[in-house]
Write a protein that binds this DNA or RNA. Structure first.
Lengths: 137, 137
DNA sequence: AGTCTTGTAACTGGCGCAGTTACTAGACTA
DNA sequence: TAGTCTAGTAACTGCGCCAGTTACAAGACT
């Protein structure tokens, strides 16, 4: 895996779990499916748990389970849970040489933020259930 | 600068040049404006030149200039020129353990590609001229 | 010839992140 | 109680991407 690996892993795992929501899956199982490491899985899925998309339990017969119904988990939920912010810039420095430059800077970041919002909106239109059931169309 | 620095630099520079399209700017000038290095500027702007958005000339009084009118350069042109591909994944490996997993994998990447296309479409709706003139609205 | 510019190659350093190891903390089982 | 199975987490490694930098070649004007 290379680019957007966290988002890809999260989507893959959630879609997989949506196929059999009752069953709890261990991070080892998930890692084997995704071709990666249990610790990596727990790191990524931990974010999703914090966002209320998944629940996890320790101990014997523990593991991971969906905390909501698949149709109530949108791609936007996942995206925001992972704190990706693909488009928006994070500057926080740049002493603007002149006020004209400063205004331009603000306009550019403003446009990028609009694009980011548009992206999130688009992601909100698709649920995990949609991803899971797109096969027979 | 940190995230999306290339896109941010490109947009900033193009918008700046759109304000005075007749004037040629050296990479040193642009770098000073953007608070970065001339070589970095030439690297990023070189991509835009390959895409036909800018032209450059060597030698005395050389430099960079817009190759099109600002209203004919969209954010999508810039995005694609930089070969960003923010959303889409680049796998190219992953022996799919079973065919079900393979189908799921294809569905996830398919959805992400749709999102990517949607992003490009959205970017195509805004031109550099739009970015440049958003101040007095 | 001298100067100014782009174009590029090569190297460095930092940052992010997957991968790994090793451990702790719960939760169940026998 | 002891054993085991799990998540949770800290710490470290290694790789890849990229801005920054230095250095130099190539072209264009004076």
């Amino acid at each position: 895996m290379k680019r957007n690996s966290r988002l890809s892993l999260a989507l893959h795992t959630l879609s997989h779990m949506a196929g059999d929501p009752a069953r709890t899956q261990t991070s080892a199982d998930i890692a084997a499916h995704a071709g990666t490491n249990p610790v990596v899985v727990r790191r990524v899925l931990g974010r999703l748990r914090e966002a209320g998309l998944l629940s996890s339990e320790k101990g014997h017969a523990g593991g991971w389970r969906l905390a909501r119904e698949p149709q109530n988990i949108t791609l936007a939920d996942v995206y925001l849970a992972l704190d990706e912010r693909l488009v928006a810039t994070s500057d926080e420095e740049n002493p603007p040489s002149c006020s004209v430059e400063h205004a331009l800077q603000k306009r550019v970041t403003g446009v990028l933020q609009e694009v980011e919002e548009s992206l999130v909106k688009k992601l909100g239109e698709t649920s995990i259930a949609d991803v899971c059931h797109t096969d027979h169309h």
